[in-house]
Design a protein around this nucleic acid. Structure first.
Lengths: 334, 334
DNA sequence: CTGTTAGCGCCTTCAT
DNA sequence: ATGAAGGCGCTAACAG
C-alpha cells in the first residue's frame, strides 16, 4: 500500500507538501496541489488513519458500546450516535457487551485503546466501582441508560419506574384490576425499576400485588412467549398485561392469539419502548415511549463536548421522562 | 494518558520489556512480568491500538459496510460478522452506506484508511467499475449480496429472482391468480430481480402480468403501507400479495387490517427475508428464507482468509438458494 | 509556498 | 532475560 513518501517521490515534492494537500491546507499552490493529487490518484493512496491518529494524538473517532447491535433498540441507538459522529467528521467504533460484565469491560477498554476521545457507553452489568474508575480515566465518557453516583452530569437515563407506573395506571384507569406483568429476567436496574413501577401503580389504587401475576423471562420475543405461557398456566382471570418491553409484548401477543384470546377484547396489553414493531403488531400496540433518539443524540453530543474539555451544558436533561403512546391494544373492561 | 515509556520508567525496565509483557512474549522472567504488570495497573495503561497497528502494519480489525445498522436486516448481518471477528481476535469497524453511492464509497475508503485487512461490503449503489478498482486494491475485500463480474469467487449472494419465483409459485399453487406485488423502489438488482421472479412465476402458469397489480415504494414498513394503499385504490379483485420483504409485508398487513380485510381469509400475503418480525406478525407470516446468518459468516471467514493471502475454499458457496418458510398467512382460495 | 526534521507510541531486530 | 535503536506513516513546528 502506497505511503506518503511514495506520493512525494512521484510528485517530486516533500512529504510535508503531500501532508498539506491531504489536510487541505491553504498554503499550497494550485499547481502543486494538482500534481500531488494526481500522484495520489495514480498510486491509489489512502492516508493511514492509524498513523494520523498517532501523530495528531487524536483519532477522530467516537466509540459506543451497546449490549448487542442486532437488537433493534440498540440498533436505533447506534444509528443515532453514528449520525452525530459523521456530522462532526468522526468515525464510529462499536463494541458489544452482550449483557456480560467481562465483555462490557473488554469493549470499553478496546475503545480506549483505540483512543476514542468520546465514548457513549451502555453497560449495565459492570459494577459501579469499575465504572467509576473508567469514568475518572476518560473524561469524554458518557453513560446512557444508567445513572452513576457522583457522575450524574455525565449520565443520560430514563425514569423507568415512572414509565412502568404510567403504563399500569393506564390499565387501571380502564377498569382493570387483575393485571399481569411480564418481567425481564436480566438482573439490572431496568428490570427492577420497571417492576417497581408496576407495583407502585397497584399500591396507589389499593390493588393487591399477586406474585402469581408476575412472570420472568428474557426481554425479547421468545421470552415474551415463555412468560405469557407461564402466566396463562397459572391464571385465567387476568384481563390485562403490562410488559417489560415491546418485544416481550409481541411474543405475548402471539401466544394469546394461539390460545384464541382476543386482544384487546379479552385481554389488554401494553408495551414499553415504542420501537418500530409496536406500530405493526395487530392491534397496534399501546406502549410507553422511550425517547431513545433524543437521549442518544444528547449523549453523543455531551461526549463530544466533554472530550474537548468543555463543561456539560447547564440545561442538559439527565433523566428523561417516558410518556404514554396510545394505540389499540388496551380496552375498557367489561 | 500513560505511554509505554511511563510504564518502563516506573517498572525500571526498558520499553522493549514492557512491549514483551504486552504481547505475552515467553522470554520475560516471572518477576519482571509481575513488576511491569503492576506498573501498568498503577498507571492505568492502555496500549495505543493506533501505534500498534502502525508498527505492526496490521490493525487486527475487520471492516463491514452496510446500508444502515439500524435496519434489522443489517443489524443481523453486522452481528454475525462481529461474532466471527471477536472469535478470531479482531475488532469490528462499521461503515454506513445509506443507500447512497458517495456514502458507500466513503465508507469503504474510511475502512481502507483504517487499514482493515478484511472487508465485508454491502454496497449496491456503487457502479461496477468503481467496485472493481477497490476489489483490485484490497485483496481481503468481499462483497455480500452482490455478484461482481470477474470477482465471483469473492462474492456471496442470494438468488433473489428464484426466491421471489418460489413465493409467487406458492401463491399460485394455492389457487391464486390475481396476485399483487409490493416492490422496492430502490434502483438496485434486488428490486428488479425479485420483481422478475414474480413475473417468472406468472408466466410459467400463463397468468397475465398486470402492471396495476404492482406498486412501488420504500422497502420498509411505511413503504409497505403506502404501496398497499396504492394497490387497494386500484384493485378490489386481488386475492394474494407477494412482497419485496417482510417489512413491507408488515406495513401492508396493517393497512389490510385497517380496511377490515382479513388475512389470510380475504387476502393471502407472503414476505421475503424471514426476519424475526415474520414470526410475530399476526398471522405469522409465510415468507422466503434468506440464509443471512450463514452467508454473513461465510463472507467474514472468506475475507479473513483472503487477507492472509489464502485462496477461497474450493467448496465455497457463492450463490445461496432461498427457501420457503410456511406459516399462516397464505390460504387456499375460495 | 515548500522542505527538513523531530517526534507520536509501539514493535522488532540485534546485541549483550 | 533484557536493553538500545531504528522504523512504521504521518504531522507540525521551524527554516528558508
Amino acid at each position: 500500500m502506497a505511503t506518503i513518501k511514495d506520493v512525494a517521490n512521484l510528485a517530486k515534492v516533500s512529504v510535508a507538501t503531500v501532508s498539506r494537500v491531504i489536510n487541505n491546507a491553504e498554503n499550497v499552490s494550485d499547481k502543486t496541489r494538482e500534481t500531488v493529487k494526481k500522484a495520489m490518484e495514480k498510486l491509489n493512496y489512502y492516508p493511514d488513519a492509524n498513523a494520523r491518529a498517532l501523530s495528531q494524538q487524536n483519532s477522530k473517532t467516537i466509540g459506543i458500546v451497546v449490549a448487542d447491535v442486532s437488537d433493534p433498540f440498540f440498533g436505533a441507538m447506534v444509528s443515532t450516535v453514528e449520525k452525530v459522529a459523521s456530522k462532526t467528521g468522526h468515525f464510529l467504533l462499536i463494541g458489544n457487551g452482550y449483557h456480560n460484565e467481562q465483555q462490557e469491560y473488554n469493549a470499553i477498554t478496546h475503545l480506549i485503546e483505540h483512543r476514542c476521545s468520546s465514548l457513549v457507553v451502555h453497560a449495565k452489568m459492570l459494577p459501579d466501582n469499575k465504572l467509576v474508575r473508567l469514568m475518572e480515566q476518560v473524561p469524554g465518557m458518557v453513560l446512557i441508560n444508567r445513572s452513576l453516583k457522583n457522575f450524574e452530569k455525565r449520565c443520560i437515563s430514563l425514569d423507568d419506574r415512572y414509565g412502568s407506573y404510567l403504563a399500569v395506571k393506564h390499565l387501571i384507569q380502564h377498569g382493570h384490576t387483575k393485571i399481569g406483568y411480564l418481567c425481564s429476567n436480566h438482573e439490572i436496574s431496568d428490570s427492577s425499576d420497571r417492576l417497581q413501577g408496576y407495583k407502585d401503580a397497584l399500591k396507589e389504587y389499593n390493588l393487591e400485588i399477586n406474585s402469581n401475576y408476575i412472570a420472568f423471562s428474557s426481554p425479547n420475543e421468545q421470552g415474551g412467549e415463555q412468560a405469557m405461557m407461564a402466566l396463562l398456566e397459572r391464571n385465567r382471570e387476568i384481563t390485562a398485561i403490562a410488559c417489560y418491553n415491546d418485544s416481550m409484548a409481541a411474543g405475548a401477543m402471539s401466544v394469546l392469539y394461539d390460545n384464541d384470546i382476543k386482544i384487546p377484547t379479552d385481554v389488554s396489553i401494553i408495551g414499553f419502548d415504542d420501537l418500530l414493531i409496536a406500530r405493526y403488531l395487530h392491534p397496534k400496540l399501546t406502549t410507553i415511549r422511550y425517547p431513545l433518539h433524543t437521549m442518544a443524540e444528547q449523549a453523543a453530543e455531551l461526549a463530544l463536548r466533554l472530550a474537548k474539555g468543555e463543561e456539560p451544558p447547564s440545561n442538559l436533561i439527565n433523566i428523561f421522562t417516558p410518556t404514554l403512546t396510545k394505540r389499540y391494544s388496551v380496552n375498557k373492561i367489561g
